[in-house]
Write a protein that binds this DNA or RNA. Structure first.
Length: 203
DNA sequence: ATTCCGATTGCCT
DNA sequence: GGCAATCGGAATG
């Protein structure tokens, strides 16, 4: 089971492409986290692209700082930042080194590891359908559910215990829209999501 | 040193 | 729909 995911782990080359291409292509693939106690597998169903060139909403727009330096590093690493004094958000670094482009993970659909996700989010196991959806239907919720935080900023998605696995026969209809929760570059249509998926945020 | 404010969430009306 | 919570990075003095 886990062997299969490991075998299908996306290689560095996948992440070196253009951020918009990767944002589209990453939908339907599996975010996997494996450690001694737990195995978590979730389908990626909603993402947004951020690119420091023309994108004023991107953390990388004004150049490299101590906070955003991972974004300017090699593709295939995880950029995790703290926001609103409460939440973490996770991004996949893309493109050539120095580009400052990344894909924000906005929503996941749990496949394996429901109890761990629920304990991390609610301190109890899931009971209702509403609880299930609330598990991973937002960028901050994802990080809480998978216990992704400061310690994971800068981890390598091709080497460490969090990675993305390819899936065969992806039968997905990808939708596109403007991004959520930003005040700059609001018209760039750089949000991508899987149609009719209950974990995707409404807009 | 101080101020501003955010790639969010959850609770309240 | 509105809005408070709560922290730290970045800008400004």
């Amino acid at each position: 089971m886990i062997k299969t995911y490991l075998k299908n782990k996306l290689p560095r080359e996948f992440y070196k492409k253009d951020v918009l291409t990767i944002a589209k292509n990453i939908l339907g693939k599996l975010l996997v986290k494996i450690d001694k106690e737990n195995q978590i597998v979730c389908k990626i169903v909603e993402v947004e692209a951020y690119d420091g060139i023309d994108d004023e909403a991107s953390h990388s727009f004004k150049g490299m700082t101590n906070r955003n330096k991972v974004m300017f590093g090699r593709a295939g690493f995880l950029y995790v930042y703290f926001t609103y004094g409460i939440h973490f958000c996770a991004n996949v670094v893309t493109g050539e080194e120095g580009t400052g482009a990344a894909v924000l993970l906005r929503a996941l659909e749990p496949i394996i590891g429901w109890d761990v996700l629920a304990m991390n989010r609610y301190k109890r196991k899931v009971i209702s359908e509403k609880d299930k959806i609330g598990l991973t239907n937002g960028p901050g919720k994802i990080c809480q559910a998978l216990d992704i935080n400061r310690k994971d900023n800068g981890i390598d998605l091709t080497e460490d215990n969090i990675f993305i696995a390819n899936v065969k026969n992806e039968n997905i209809s990808v939708c596109q829209s403007t991004r959520i929760g930003i005040k700059k570059s609001v018209d760039l249509p750089w949000r991508f999501y899987i149609k009719h998926n209950p974990y995707v945020s409404k807009k």
